[in-house]
Design a binder for these strands. Sequence first.
DNA 1: TGCTTATATGACTATACAATCATATAGACA
DNA 2: TGTCTATATGATTGTATAGTCATATAAGCA
Lengths: 104, 104
Amino acid sequence: MNNPTEYQADILKALGQPTRLKIVEFLRDGERCVCEIFPAIGEEQSNTSRHLNMLQASGILSRRKDGLKIYYAIKHPEVMAIVDLSRQIMVQEITGKNLLLQAV
Amino acid sequence: MNNPTEYQADILKALGQPTRLKIVEFLRDGERCVCEIFPAIGEEQSNTSRHLNMLQASGILSRRKDGLKIYYAIKHPEVMAIVDLSRQIMVQEITGKNLLLQAV
DNA sequence: TGCTTATATGACTATACAATCATATAGACA
DNA sequence: TGTCTATATGATTGTATAGTCATATAAGCA
C-alpha cells in the first residue's frame, strides 16, 4: 500500500479470487458469522478465516464481534456493483466465444 | 477457467495488479499501440507485452494489428466502471482512516 | 475452575506471478 | 536480399499466494 494505484489494485485483487468471490457473493444478503460462511462456500474454517481477514484488511468487509461469534458484512455498496459488472463482462465474453464457435 | 466463478475471478484478478491497472487507465481515452503504452507507464517493453497479453486473454482488452504496430483498447465499458468504483472504495477507506487518525 | 464452541494463527508445501535479460518473430521498406 | 522497427517469448529468479494440519486464543457456560 505505498501509493494509490497499489491500494486500488489491492482492492480488486482481493475480489479476484474464487474463494473470496464466493464469500462476497454469500454476504450479498447481509452479515453472517464465520460459522455460517465456511460451510456455505464449502471451504475449511482456517482457510475461510484467512480470506475473511484479508477481505477485511483491504476494506471490502466490515467485522463485528458478538460473544463468541464474529460477523462479517459487505462494507461498501460499490463492492457488489463491481461483482455485478464483472459478471456482465464474463457473460458477454462467453456469449462472444459461443458465437465464434457456432460460426465454425 | 473451469467454472463461472473462476472466470469471473480471473477478470477481477487481471485488473488487480498495479502495472495492469496503469495500462487500463492509460487506455481510458482510446486505443494505443504497445510503443506508446510502455513508455507511458514506465515499464519495460517485454513486461508490458506480457501484461497486455494477459489483459487480452481475460477479455479486458481488444487487440488490433496495423502493419508493425499492435493497438490495444478497452473492450467493455464495464471495465472502466469497475476501475472507477474501486477508486471510490479506496477514497472512502482512506478518508475513514484519516478521520480515525484525527480522532487520536 | 474446567469444558465447549468459535475463530485465528504458526508452520509448511505446492503453485502462481512479476520482472528481467536475451533472443525470436514478423512486417515494412530500401 | 538485408536492415530496421515493433512486438512477443523462452529461461530464469525471487517473491507471493492458497490451502492444509495442528494448535492457540478467547468468550460463554456448567
